[in-house]
Design a protein around this nucleic acid. Structure first.
Ligand SMILES: NC(=O)c1ccc[n+]([C@@H]2O[C@H](COP(=O)([O-])OP(=O)(O)OC[C@H]3O[C@@H](n4cnc5c(N)ncnc54)[C@H](O)[C@@H]3O)[C@@H](O)[C@H]2O)c1
Ligand SMILES: NC(=O)c1ccc[n+]([C@@H]2O[C@H](COP(=O)([O-])OP(=O)(O)OC[C@H]3O[C@@H](n4cnc5c(N)ncnc54)[C@H](O)[C@@H]3O)[C@@H](O)[C@H]2O)c1
Lengths: 256, 256
DNA sequence: AGACGTTTGTGAACACGCGCACAAAGTCAC
DNA sequence: GTGACTTTGTGCGCGTGTTCACAAACGTCT
């Protein structure tokens, strides 16, 4: 009964799952707005956003009571409320670190600026890239990282360098005061508490797709090559489970 | 007691949350392997993957009992098992649709091939791009989509076109037999049951970061300009929630 | 062989998110 | 004003995912 430590609570808190969906609603709303729609019901908006309508209503209810029963939600008003909740009514200054294939694509992407994200700086270590002008910005040398962050008031760092450099660069931007990082490098970044890291990992997405694709095709290890010679490390060969990965329906634990 | 229809169950089923983490474990394991590590404990591997060790053990237990108590997991063996479960022991043929900034970056990315994903085709609608050779492949015209899918036995389609074209292209690849789609366009794709879609949306990631960044700074609408004229539709002004929002910087549709 | 330290695999409690279903609240027609 | 209809906001049960904590299993050392 001693309601002691309410760790992760926070009455003011919007569930993380909801936060992740708000941008989707926002996009759908903008699309409706462009088409001149003034009012939308939860059912319609949910369909446009690809979610359950009850979920949508519950999500929106976390921001307040902005709907009108019997009518629906006013598009403009809702756009404003969601934008405000997400912090899109102010500009966020972004720096892209690593101007390779991916960094270049990001730098030239219009979808950022349109939502209040301003790419203010590009940084790289390669002398062949530093100094070049890309998407209207001159690439700065990575040595200037701290100065650039301070100069522009960068609040979000995008890391698009090889994995090997990511953690060190992450440490530097965090030390320089940045508390939000978007990471494209295939590594798990470790950061102190209070710093938010989100990662985008194409390779993982593909692997998840592969898993489901394989499942549809009839489970793993369909080929007979189900054996693991186990000839590697020179452990004794004796007391080893010879469980050959047994996919589901195979022999199991025949430990004689 | 009548354990009848276990809809979404499936005794053979690995939880989705687990599937999403397996690639992370795999990456950590490869890293350990390169460093010559032979055996790893759940504690160490969990640290490397950035998760709780109990979670890791439970995840792995879904694949089978591949650990040794008092010792840990054998790196090579575990890599093999996870790879097999994810379907990475076979090759998956990928087609990239839309060879713009992003498509180009993806085409030239080495991280795909290294895990059993083979980019076999690039397609685009722009005559200026069709026929060009990128990353060793000749860009085909989008009209040939169905033929290309069939020719190469494409099983995963990556959509990197503008949002406006995404749904139509998705419909076409699905009609052509593809059941796995990785979507970069900022739209919610609707697909028939049995088709798996995963989306990567940078804009959403940034907005989530912005939300947390704003929260740290003291919640939304920090300015006092919390008014929303609400002068829109001529509803009575009486029974109106007077929840005011409306930051200064945008009056909207004040059609008196 | 037996005791000891280590680490897995998992039962159980807990937290979170989802979706149904419905009362309350509003609109609209007359 | 009244009644019928529409749609929101939410209480509730359910399933999924996370974490703790511990017995059982294993290797090692004596
Ligand atoms: N290109 C893709 O489609 C793709 C897909 C998935 C993941 N990724 C990941 O994104 C990251 C970038 O990919 P890419 O294809 O652009 O690689 P890239 O090699 O083309 O570009 C990396 C850039 O980072 C710069 N760099 C290296 N070390 C640096 C440092 N210490 N400080 C500053 N800059 C540094 C390099 O000079 C280069 O310009 C990689 O981690 C990659 O694994 C890329
Ligand atoms: N570049 C980025 O960093 C970035 C970031 C986030 C999201 N995105 C999204 O990814 C998608 C691609 O972005 P991009 O920057 O590469 O755009 P882009 O305009 O550079 O490239 C789009 C390509 O698609 C081709 N295309 C258009 N219609 C087509 C059709 N019907 N069939 C085949 N090809 C067609 C175009 O010819 C062009 O080559 C967009 O939806 C964008 O919103 C891009």
């Amino acid at each position: 009964m001693t309601r002691r430590h309410n760790r992760t609570r926070a009455e003011r808190g919007i569930p993380e799952a909801t936060v992740a969906r708000l941008p989707v609603y926002l996009r759908a709303l903008h699309s409706l707005q462009e088409r001149g729609v003034v009012t939308v019901s939860s059912e319609e908006l949910a369909a446009a956003a690809g979610v359950n309508s009850a979920k949508l209503r519950k999500d929106l209810s976390h921001l307040g009571s902005y709907g009108t029963r019997g009518v629906g939600y006013e598009v403009d008003y809702l756009i404003y409320q969601i934008s405000r909740e997400l912090g899109l009514t102010q500009d966020w200054v972004v720096a892209i670190i690593g101007v390779g294939n991916l960094g270049r694509a990001l730098a030239g992407y219009g979808g950022f600026a349109s939502r209040g994200f301003r790419v203010a700086a590009l940084l790289d270590a390669d002398p062949a890239v530093v100094g070049a002008e890309i998407a209207g910005l001159t690439v700065r040398h990575i040595d200037e990282l701290e100065r650039v962050i301070d100069e522009h008031g960068v609040s979000i760092a995008v890391i698009a360098t090889p994995a090997s450099a990511a953690q060190a660069l992450c440490d530097r931007v965090v030390a320089a005061g940045v508390t939000s990082v978007l990471n494209f490098a295939p590594v798990v970044l470790s950061v102190p508490e209070g710093v938010e890291v989100r990662k985008v990992d194409l390779s993982i997405e593909l692997q998840i797709l592969a898993f489901h694709e394989q499942r549809k095709a009839g489970g793993p290890g369909e080929s007979a090559a189900d054996d693991w010679s186990k000839g590697l490390s020179g452990h004794g060969d004796g007391p080893r489970r010879e469980r050959p990965p047994g996919t589901s329906e195979y022999i199991e634990a025949v430990e004689a």
